[in-house]
Computed example of a mutant assay.
Amino acid sequence: MRSVNEQLMDELIAHSLFSGRYSTSVARRMIKVLNEFDAELTASLIVTLDDVSIDVNGFTARRLESSLSSVRSINKRAVDSAFSLLTEEMREYAVYEMGYYPSLFDDLLPDAVLRQYPLMGITEEMLFSSVMSRPFQGKLLSEWASGLESDRMTRISNTVRNGYLNGDSTVDIGRKIRGHANQGYKDGVLQLSRANATTIAKTAISHLQATARDQFVDANKDIFDCKQWLSTLDNKTSHTCIVRDRLKYTLDGKPIGHKVPYLQGPGKIHFNCRSTETLVTKSWRELGIDLDEMDAGTRASMDGQVPTDTTYLAWILRQPEWRQRQVFGETRFRLMKEGGIHPSEFYTDKGEFISLEQLKQIDSEAFHRTGR
């Protein structure tokens, strides 16, 4: 019989994977909303600029701002609509997340444990209000919305100003802002704002998922021993997450057996973080369960051991060279393959990725040791 902790790790990895796919779909719908408004925005911009005769020599920022009032209004509606969609999706997702963890543990934990430690749930309002009132990557969701609105308007204003100074037609200015249809509108100045909106949406969903997990753990901490960081094993994994893969932390985020700080934790440590964590339950003895309350197989499944699996660093050593180059870059790859340096040496004991300048200092030593 596989242990509860082994099953738990598998389920949480799968949950993180599918949550990531969900966040991608939400981001795409947000972009669709923005794109629908961008057509109206560009049309209004062209009409406005055609109606305003501005001498280049008399062109001022004040006159520009006055002429773009209608465009500013449309831009605000666009961003408000996109973030309204995101907020509603997050509220619905909060309902799902608040039920996911109790359901998972109700299914995995033996009846003897559940009788002694009945699961405590969290409410939708508790979770949603926490998510909306706690910043991620330094800002609240409402602040990210305001920032995106301002960023888009700045890009529009700068493009109009430069277009006038360069003698561009109003149609050309509109195309520079929105992009060309045959390019999927990805060549306009608003494309970066679309990318930013995607990043915000995916990070917000990840923030919600991590908050739901934290609140469930806090409400049921008596059954847990610790938590273990799980990083996605592919060539897009960030350096901050690579070194934390499989490391253990206390329930309040203190390192266990290492010095790498927890920081904001998996799913929150950086934009688009795909890391998650598994929760390690205590053994049946640590929970104070009587021997006769469980059969031998059930007791074995509640051994309290941390699941063993391949670490990221062990995994990367088995990968083809092209992937190792993608992950570490040419200089680190060369040091690893020709200088005999293990990938773990690319990090400090605090989990910081060693800079290329620092690598230069150990470069000659590495090749000296190997006689190269």
Results as ranks from 00 to 15, higher is better:
Glu321Thr: 13
Glu36Val: 03
Tyr312Asp: 08
Pro110Asp: 05
Asp55Phe: 09
Thr281Trp: 03
Thr250Tyr: 09
Ser364Gln: 12
Lys254Arg: 15
Ala39Arg: 07
Ala181Met: 10
Val131Asp: 03
Ile156Glu: 01
Ser69Arg: 15
Ala43Arg: 15
Val4Leu: 15
Arg152Tyr: 07
His207Tyr: 07
Arg299Gln: 14
His239Glu: 13
Pro118Ser: 04
Ser169Val: 09
Val327Lys: 02
Arg325Lys: 15
Ile54Glu: 12
Val95Gly: 06
Pro343Val: 09
Gly340Lys: 04
Thr370Ile: 15
Ile316His: 06
Lys186His: 03
Arg285Cys: 01
Phe346Gln: 06
Thr48Trp: 03
Arg194Gly: 03
Phe18Gln: 11
Leu192Ile: 15
Lys259Tyr: 08
Thr298Val: 13
Phe353Tyr: 15
Asp234Trp: 08
Val113Gln: 08
Ala43Lys: 14
Arg21Tyr: 14
Ile156Gln: 01
Leu41Pro: 00
Phe346Tyr: 09
Gly58Lys: 09
Met153Val: 03
Ser69Phe: 12
Asp151Cys: 01
Pro261Cys: 09
Val280Cys: 03
Pro102Leu: 05
Asn5Lys: 06
Tyr262Phe: 14
Ser169Gln: 01
Asp295Met: 07
Thr203Gln: 08
Lys139Tyr: 06
Glu125Ala: 11
Glu65Gln: 12
Asp106Phe: 06
Tyr96Trp: 02
Leu287Ala: 04
Gly265Asp: 08
Thr281Phe: 01
Ser73Pro: 00
Val4Cys: 10
Val56Pro: 15
Glu352Ile: 13
Arg152Ala: 14
Gly99Arg: 09
Val33Arg: 09
Ala219Thr: 09
Leu165Gly: 05
Gly20Ser: 09
Ile54Met: 15
Asp10Gly: 02
Ile54Trp: 04
Tyr93Thr: 12
Arg72Asn: 10
Val160Arg: 02
Thr159Gly: 00
Thr170Gln: 12
Ile205Gly: 02
Thr278His: 01
Pro266Cys: 10
Thr48Pro: 05
Gln361Asp: 02
Gln191Phe: 15
Arg77Thr: 05
Gln264Gly: 05
Met132Gln: 05
Leu356Gly: 02
Leu108Gln: 03
Asn220Pro: 09
Gly297Ile: 10
Gly167Cys: 05
Asp111Ile: 13
Val280Asp: 11
Pro135Leu: 03
Ala210Gly: 08
Lys32Phe: 06
Lys254Phe: 10
Gln358Ser: 13
His207Val: 04
Phe105Val: 06
Leu45Val: 14
Ser206Tyr: 01
Arg178Met: 14
